[in-house]
């Protein structure tokens, strides 16, 4: 499958600071890709270069094989929302979209259509943006990015400032958009925000690529330990049996943490001892742990 976005050896310096440092990655067509990194990792700068708002010091960033500014109908190819892309506080959301429709050569009715898509139709769309909540602004950002019904969506931290309901709405919306076959590149500094939606992730830290691959690859890896729960009385006997089987056991009140023995073997030992287990599960590193390890281990040169 071809790449919708191709970033090659991209570097961006601000004075002596390398915001993006020889970064290369690609975004697969039709996939939802999470663009992850801690605050200040260079995500927004990279997206600004991809979208032609900033010039790279070196390297290239292509959308469907061309620089964004050279696309024939940019709004129909890429819909983007960046945090810095703002609204005039005295203008209504609908008027903001209508002005963008005119600039993109789209009919004004498209503004109303996308307002419906993001649940801002009616009075909400006619209100001045100064009266919008952060969640409403994020929806308006998304509406603006959808105006041209683009094949590619680039969203910069769309979940920032959203409450749990808003995050769920965003997740559902992104799933819906991805289900329509669009390519989605969504940046975030919180892995869990995009883990449930993204097919792939690109992780950067200090402007450098740290990891690119399927989300499942990040969350995979061997179990760290086995957690087993049983009644208080027989648990000491179980601990002894597991140690005899080669396990390293950390006893706790009503449960054990067992290393060096697989979950299946723990179950077999418990059965052999005639101990009823209340719970048996593998302890794995969380996505956040993996993410933190990846992004904190990359030292700035």
């Amino acid at each position: 499958m071809s790449s919708a976005i191709e970033v090659e050896a991209l570097t961006k310096r601000f004075g002596g600071v390398r915001a993006v440092d020889d970064l290369s990655f690609s975004v697969r067509e039709g996939a939802v890709t999470g663009f992850l990194g801690p605050n200040g990792a260079g995500k927004t700068t990279t997206l600004r270069i991809v979208l032609g708002l900033a010039r790279p010091t070196s390297g290239t960033a292509l959308v469907q094989g061309k620089p964004f500014a050279r696309l024939e109908h940019p709004s129909r190819v890429v819909g983007a929302s960046l945090e810095r892309a703002g609204f005039h506080p005295g203008r209504s959301g609908r008027d903001h979209l209508r002005s963008l429709c005119a600039m993109a050569g789209l009919p004004a009715s498209r503004a109303d259509e996308v307002l419906v898509l993001v649940d801002l139709a009616g009075k909400a769309g006619r209100r001045r943006v100064s009266g919008y909540s952060l969640g409403m602004r994020q929806r308006l950002h998304l509406a603006a990015s959808l105006l041209g019904d683009p094949a590619i969506l680039i969203l910069d931290e769309p979940a920032n400032g959203l409450d749990p309901q808003g995050i769920r709405w965003l997740r559902d919306t992104l799933r819906g958009l991805a289900g329509e076959g669009r390519t989605v590149l969504v940046s975030s500094h919180v892995l869990s925000e995009v883990a449930q939606t993204a097919d792939e992730v690109v992780v950067i830290a200090h402007g450098r690529l740290v990891e690119q691959g399927p989300v499942a690859a990040l969350s995979g890896g061997p179990a760290q330990a086995v957690i087993v729960r049983a009644d208080l009385a027989p648990i000491a006997a179980l601990a002894a049996a597991l140690e005899a089987a080669g396990g390293i056991v950390e006893p706790h009140e009503g449960w054990l943490r067992v290393r060096e023995v697989e979950a299946r073997r723990v179950g077999e030992v418990a059965l052999a001892q005639g101990i009823a287990l209340h719970a048996l599960y593998e302890e794995r590193r969380s996505l956040e742990d993996v993410f933190l390890d990846l992004t904190s281990g990359e030292a700035r040169p």
Partner: peptide
């Protein structure tokens, strides 16, 4: 200058990237 102050220039350039024309 309001375009830069409110960030609306970014929204415009995301739709129509030709800066001279804008």
């Amino acid at each position: 200058t309001g375009e830069h102050r409110h960030g609306t220039i970014t929204a415009a350039l995301l739709i129509a990237p030709g800066r001279v024309r804008v």
